[in-house]
Write a protein that binds this DNA or RNA. Structure first.
Lengths: 231, 231
DNA sequence: TATTGATGTCTCAAATAGTGAGATGTCAAC
DNA sequence: GTTGACATCTCACTATTTGAGACATCAATA
């Protein structure tokens, strides 16, 4: 899956970043985890440090630096408002709330809030989840052009008819599709051209979302509308 | 300042990421902004895309991909709680709230919330701000070893005596240090070893923070305590 | 409708950067 | 005091990367 990109130095640098994202790494750890030779790992780690992609913690271990967050945050004007809205939605519903954007045939969680107590679904910000299962996936796929739907729907846990229902109702519902025992409800976020650019979701134990009530649906759709652009 | 790291391919890749973080870029834009030759820009952009560091938007423009967010989010277990706490602090005080971590001689904003209306201080998540001015800077520097304080304090808008006051009071206050007209108040976040790992701040118009009241200080210190680890 | 220029993509000979064995220094464990 | 693990550095050699040029596509223009 994660084969060479054709630029060897970048491949090696990314293997270091992946290792460091997993947990803080000494140089020896980097050598062990990435399989790079010691001078190569050292040189590349210093270069990544120069570019603020990694940093050193007080024990000298490499950790992720500020550059990834700076890049991730730049230009995504949806995220700040998304974070506010998932918090409000979590408080209003008592369920976990997330916002996802589509990335290829996956979805990226760009904001998340979960209840402090009780049984709950945890989706960390930065997670990449499948676009072939779950209500958020259906929302992100439903309004795509047919050829893209054709590609994405292969092996999906939902069908074309489900996507039609999503377009009709303006929200999607799923039970146990992405993860057993978890239910979710999602609605689309539109940009000023009316395109779907994100999905707002609530998720939690299946019994809490077996039959979404009008109140839950309204809170969700309202949240999605508030996230949509009005320019 | 941003000179070569010694690994040319990485330098070039980062120049592409910086360009794309600024705004979505066509290949032609990348060539123009980075000064790279067209085939080089093309090859490196495809390699970055392969590693999910960039992606293509519907118009074919390069945008930041999910990998930076995934890396930034990984292993930073403070951030999810930080986001919740800045929202609560913003609501309780009516002022902007942020959480910062130290990175070298700068500070990175890892969570932020600002009031919806009125005059307010805006600090986007992902921003790198100076460690030589502002109350958060004083909090992040105050508990460092003396040699590090010696280095950082050169050219700083605060003095060693200010840092002693911060250690004594457990919070820092500044007016117009980082930006004219803006006041701020900050408190330290400790890890389970008692080390300062972040700063919680409130900021806003100088007149709102000219003389922080006991209520404001308590809300701030409480927020910082709730963020501190209890393991 | 044909032409032109800009853009994106690809190839491969030549050029250059990057690699890694080995040396050196530091430090904790024994 | 010794030893082994680790981090850092050098530079001859190797492999990767580069970019000129070719080709395809497409929108703008005459």
């Amino acid at each position: 899956m994660d084969k060479s990109s054709g630029v060897g130095v970048l491949d090696k640098a990314v293997s270091i970043l992946d290792a460091v994202a997993e947990q803080p790494c000494s140089l020896a750890d980097l050598v062990r985890v990435t399989g790079l030779t010691r001078p190569t790992a050292h040189r590349l780690a210093l270069a990544l440090e120069h570019h603020l992609m990694v940093a050193r913690d007080p024990t000298g271990h490499f950790v992720i630096g500020p550059a990834p967050m700076t890049w991730a945050a730049a230009g995504d004007d949806l995220r700040p408002r998304a974070e506010q809205i998932v918090t409000e939605l979590r408080d209003a519903t008592g369920l976990s709330a997330q916002v996802y954007r589509r990335v290829g045939d996956e979805r990226l969680c760009i904001a998340a809030a979960e209840p402090a107590t009780g049984l709950r679904d945890t989706v960390p910000v930065g997670s990449l989840l499948t676009l072939r299962a779950g209500s958020a996936a259906q929302v992100l796929v439903a309004w795509l052009p047919d050829p893209e739907i054709d590609t994405l729907i292969r092996g999906a846990a939902y069908r074309r008819a489900d996507l039609q229902t999503v377009r009709h109702r303006g929200w999607a519902h799923s039970l146990g599709q992405r993860e057993p025992g978890v239910g979710s409800l999602s609605a689309p976020v539109h940009d000023s051209h009316g395109r779907v650019v994100a999905a707002v979701s609530i998720s939690g134990p299946q019994d809490r979302l077996a039959r979404p009530g009008a109140a839950q649906r309204r809170l969700l759709v309202d949240a999605a509308l508030r996230l949509s652009t009005r320019t």
